Lab assay of single mutants.
Amino acid sequence: TRVETATETAWISLVTALHLVLGLSAVLGLLLLRWQFPAHYRRLRHALW
């Protein structure tokens, strides 16, 4: 049971790290898009909202 718990903890930390990385890359990508294509971003936002 001790090994299982350790594996579970490792998986949880791995998944958390993955989610953090994905979230950060998504935010960075959005910022980059907004910085590179302001007109396109505004049009996209206008279409979405």
Rank of each mutant, 00 (worst) to 15 (best):
T1D: 07
R2A: 12
V3Q: 01
V3I: 14
E4Y: 12
E4A: 12
E4P: 02
T5R: 01
T5S: 02
T5M: 06
T5D: 02
T5L: 01
T5A: 01
T5P: 00
A6M: 10
A6I: 05
A6R: 11
A6T: 14
T7P: 11
T7S: 13
T7N: 10
E8N: 00
E8K: 07
E8Y: 06
E8S: 02
T9A: 11
A10M: 09
A10C: 02
W11R: 01
W11L: 08
I12S: 06
I12H: 06
V15I: 13
T16V: 14
T16A: 13
A17Y: 04
A17L: 11
L18P: 02
L18M: 09
L18S: 00
L18Q: 05
L18G: 00
H19K: 01
H19R: 04
H19N: 02
H19T: 05
H19Y: 02
L20C: 12
L20Q: 03
L20M: 11
L20D: 00
V21W: 04
V21K: 03
V21E: 02
V21M: 10
L22V: 14
L22R: 02
G23A: 12
G23P: 06
G23R: 00
G23S: 09
G23K: 01
G23M: 12
L24P: 07
S25I: 01
S25K: 04
S25P: 05
S25Q: 08
A26L: 13
A26N: 00
V27C: 11
V27L: 12
L28A: 02
L28D: 00
L30R: 02
L30W: 07
L30N: 04
L31S: 11
L32N: 04
L32H: 08
L32F: 06
L32W: 07
L33H: 06
L33T: 05
R34L: 02
W35Y: 15
W35N: 15
W35Q: 15
Q36H: 15
Q36P: 07
F37T: 06
F37S: 03
F37Q: 04
P38G: 10
P38T: 08
P38M: 13
A39D: 15
A39H: 15
A39V: 14
A39E: 15
H40F: 14
H40W: 08
Y41M: 14
Y41F: 15
Y41D: 03
R42I: 10
R42K: 15
R42G: 14
R42Y: 14
R43V: 09
R43Q: 08
R43G: 07
R43L: 07
R43C: 09
R43K: 12
L44K: 02
R45T: 09
R45E: 05
R45A: 08
R45Q: 08
R45C: 06
H46M: 08
H46G: 09
H46A: 06
H46W: 03
H46P: 07
A47E: 05
L48D: 06
L48V: 12
W49I: 10
W49P: 06
W49A: 06
